[in-house]
Design a protein around this nucleic acid. Structure first.
Lengths: 147, 147
DNA sequence: TTGCTCCTCACGTCACGTGAGGTGGC
DNA sequence: TTGCTCCTCACGTCACGTGAGGTGGC
């Protein structure tokens, strides 16, 4: 159920050093108060959280500073949803959601733009590959140069 | 026809410092022997070349070291295609092409994988956005809680 | 002549990499 | 007890950012 830093690192495709650095930045809270020098232990939630951070970093190219901001915003939202049922201030809820929407929109636009560019790159690479194969076949052919 | 470092930087979405650094690594040859202290001048070919480098760096996440290797391979190919018509050693041509193909294949696989992951991220973000809007509409509605 | 952009060091920063030396759990 | 992975400094590195001080072309 709980894993050590080496395993969560491997599952997320990073190194232990990266995880310690993220903890230092406040991106990945040390799970429970850890007595000085003791091993870090992580649960399934931590694994999912870290993988999500790595995904946004790699795919959208977000900086760690941006990830910290995102995490803080998510923190605010979670904190609010905890008293979602009990509290009654709808105006506050509306405000939180209205703030969250443009953030998600920006991420979505970034993802769409990148995906479009990657599609373009893909077709160019495909064409390049076909050209190389053509030339190779031509050179391998017995004689007859291209008419 | 020729532009200075500030303009090629702006057209490529980077800073002059980035271009000087790439020149230092041998990624962007100083166009013609530049007398010490003189301004760097670039042509249309340099702009295209730099944009291509930035694209591979940003979209595929290649390191500058990998870009240097790619550039050297391209250099070899160009050098060969220069004597493409005159030279007669077909075996050498075949070898160069056979070396180039797996490189392009790897780039293509990287691009496909990233695009797939971006597609997944996109649909998740879209769902998240729809959910936020639903909740907002619900809060804005006069009374009736969700049945 | 006045701005503007350019030049070359050179130190700073971000996101980790990489040992050095030591402690702790299966 | 022996490995193994973990721990904490702490310096190194990659890819630039950011002035400091100065020269050159429209």
């Amino acid at each position: 159920m709980t894993v050590r830093i080496g395993e969560i690192a491997e599952r997320s495709g990073v190194t232990p050093r990266t995880i310690r650095y993220y903890e230092e930045l406040g991106l990945l809270g040390p799970p429970g108060a850890r007595s000085k020098g003791a091993h870090r232990l992580y649960g399934d939630g931590d694994v999912a959280r870290l993988r999500e951070l790595i995904r946004l970093r790699d795919l959208l190219g977000l900086s760690l500073e941006e990830l910290v901001e995102l995490a803080e915003a998510a923190q605010t939202r979670d904190c609010l949803s905890a008293r979602w049922a009990s509290s009654t201030d709808d105006r506050e809820r509306v405000q939180i959601i209205e703030e969250a929407i443009p953030h998600v929109q920006r991420q979505l636009e970034l993802a769409r733009a990148r995906r479009g560019n990657l599609g373009e790159l893909e077709s160019q690479l495909t064409a390049k590959l076909a050209d190389l194969r053509d030339r190779l076949a031509e050179l391998a052919a017995p004689a007859a140069p291209p008419r």
